[in-house]
Structures are given as C-alpha cells and as structure tokens.
Simulated scan of single mutants.
Amino acid sequence: MTAVEPGGVTGVPASPGRTVGPARLVRSVDDFGRLRPGDVLVCRTTDPAWTPLFHLAAAIVTETGGLLSHAAIVARECRIPAVVGAAEALSLLEDGAPVVVDGSLGTVTGATR
C-alpha cells in the first residue's frame, strides 16, 4: 500500500494476470465516457453500476477493497488483472500514463516504451 517506485503502487492481488495500458482515472459515473477499450480503470471503488466498464478495461485498480470486493469478483469473472486496496492510486498514478498491472503480485508500475 506504499509507492514501489515513482508512479507505482501496491495493493491486494485480486485477479491474476499482467497487462499494460494507459491509466484512466475515473472518479465518478460522470467520467465513465472517458474509458476506452484497453485502458486500465483506476478508481476509488466499484459497485454494480460500474460493471459495464469491466468489459472495456484491460485491468482494474481500486484504492479500496479486498478479495471479496465487487471489483475483485467481477475482474476474475471477466478474466482481467486486478489490484485492489491500492491506497492513493488516484493521486500517485497519472491519467493517460502507461502502466503495468500485475494482478498476481498486486503491483502497478510505470511502463517503459
């Protein structure tokens, strides 16, 4: 739950897999339209209203939650990587910056090109 490197965070490994994509910071339902296919959804938490976004996202990162949270369960069902309980993800990650999400290790780090 602390920064692992500039632009990186750790949390609970909630759905296995590793992917790279641009971080898309979504703070409320008003931001849903900003998410594009292949983006990494970064948010405070999710609930059933957020479920359609899981079909667009390459991975999920939430600031709250655990293995039985909505984000973790739906990410596993959609077979996309997820890291939950990643404190301060919305303030430590930059919108649009490429990130590597490792849902097996619970890490989110900056991607190199």
Rank of each mutant, 00 (worst) to 15 (best):
M1I: 09
T2W: 11
T2H: 14
A3V: 06
A3F: 07
A3Q: 14
V4E: 12
E5C: 08
P6R: 12
P6H: 08
G7K: 10
G8T: 04
V9S: 02
G11N: 04
V12E: 12
A14I: 00
A14F: 03
A14G: 00
G17D: 02
R18D: 01
R18N: 00
V20P: 01
G21N: 03
P22Y: 01
R24S: 10
V26G: 08
V26K: 02
R27K: 14
S28W: 11
S28K: 09
D30T: 12
D30Q: 11
D30A: 14
D31G: 06
D31F: 09
D31Y: 13
F32V: 09
G33Q: 07
R34K: 15
R34A: 15
L35Q: 01
R36W: 06
P37K: 06
V40Q: 04
V42D: 01
C43I: 09
R44D: 12
T45G: 00
T46M: 06
D47G: 14
P48W: 05
P48T: 02
W50A: 07
T51V: 13
L53M: 10
L53D: 06
F54T: 01
F54D: 00
L56E: 13
L56H: 07
L56I: 00
A57R: 10
A58P: 02
A59Y: 02
V61T: 02
V61L: 10
E63D: 05
E63H: 05
T64C: 10
T64F: 14
G65T: 11
G65V: 03
G65R: 07
G66K: 08
G66W: 07
G66Q: 12
L68H: 14
S69G: 02
S69L: 10
H70W: 09
I73C: 11
V74Q: 08
A75G: 04
A75M: 05
A75W: 07
R76W: 00
E77R: 14
R79F: 10
R79G: 08
R79Q: 15
I80D: 01
P81H: 09
P81T: 09
V83A: 07
V83P: 04
V84R: 05
V84E: 05
V84A: 04
G85D: 08
A86W: 06
A87N: 01
E88R: 14
E88P: 00
E88Q: 09
A89P: 04
A89H: 03
L90W: 09
L90K: 03
S91E: 15
S91F: 11
L92W: 03
L93I: 05
L93P: 01
L93T: 05
E94A: 12
D95P: 06
A97R: 15
A97M: 02
V99D: 01
D102L: 09
D102N: 15
S104P: 01
L105T: 15
G106P: 09
T107K: 06
A111F: 11
A111M: 10
T112Y: 00
T112S: 13
T112R: 13
R113P: 14
